[in-house]
């Protein structure tokens, strides 16, 4: 059976620096994979190439067999949702309207239907009581949960997360991680750039380790964390405090 998301031989340079040197990966429907690696190894760039926020120089991205191109990108982005590190909630809209605006403008949903859908998604991320609050009235963790609700409302096939907890105070990461875990349990297909080892252990089907613009290894979390195959991966795990003393 064809994979839901196929990323094939993506290359991307910024100026003379080649950030991605031919990256391939794939996700089955319902799978969650976590991409790890030191900063500057192209993880976020890869994620942005998947939904063409940064178009790749070469390579292919296919969703359900359909290639993502400049021509269909706006439609495909509704199926490949993106959650940003710094949330990027629409600042002039309430939590609810951050969610309804896409439904109204892109799905042409009626006001009442969009509102109902938004409230359902807010409930899903545990923020029913915050629907009328504006982004600057919400904590970072709450903002990130609203942004996840905004992404979910478009009924995406795949959710991309770009370091969703990196901009949060440590005590706020838990609420975001637990929302992500429940999505994984519900069978959402997710590609997550994150250093949340706990999340990877509990929710990921595989960890993808990137280094220097390549995928160095891909393994189930248990295997990756206990017996990484590459030195670079071992060093990385030691650096983030997960490595076992050799």
């Amino acid at each position: 059976m064809a994979k839901l998301l196929e990323v094939e031989d993506i290359r991307k340079s910024f100026g003379s620096t080649e950030v991605l040197k031919g990256v391939s990966l794939s996700l089955d429907r319902g799978e969650t994979k976590v991409i790890m690696g030191s900063s500057g190894t192209g993880k976020s760039t890869l994620l942005r190439c998947v939904n063409r926020l940064d178009p790749a120089d070469s390579g292919h991205v296919r969703l359900d067999g359909e290639e993502v191109t400049d021509a269909n990108v706006n439609r495909m982005r509704q199926r490949i949702a993106f959650v940003f590190q710094d949330f990027n909630l629409f600042l002039h809209l309430s939590a609810r309207d951050n969610i309804t605006i896409g439904l109204r403008k892109l799905r042409k949903m009626s006001k009442a239907d969009a509102r109902q859908r938004a409230d359902r998604e807010l409930d899903r991320v545990g923020l029913s009581d915050r629907a009328d609050n504006y982004p600057s009235q919400l904590s970072g963790g709450q903002q990130q949960r609203v942004s996840i609700a905004r992404a979910l409302a478009m009924d995406p096939d795949v959710l991309l997360f770009d370091e969703p907890t990196s901009a949060l105070d440590p005590e706020l990461t838990g609420e975001v991680v637990s929302v992500m875990q429940s999505l994984a349990r519900d069978g959402m297909t997710m590609l997550v750039v994150s250093h949340e080892v706990g999340f990877a252990r509990r929710a990921a089907d595989a960890v993808i380790f990137m280094d220097g613009g390549h995928v160095l290894e891909e393994a189930p979390p248990k295997e990756f964390f206990s017996a990484p195959k590459h030195d670079r991966a071992r060093q990385f795990l030691t650096a983030i405090g997960e490595g076992e003393a050799a």
Partner: peptide
């Protein structure tokens, strides 16, 4: 902030839609 347009594009809005619905209302204020 540039992230506003980026988020608009990320949910599938065109540049024009993003400008009209997200950037312009904030710029006007």
């Amino acid at each position: 902030p540039p992230g506003q347009m980026m988020a608009a594009r990320a949910i599938g809005m065109t540049r024009m839609e993003g400008f009209r619905s997200i950037v312009l209302p904030q710029a006007m204020r």
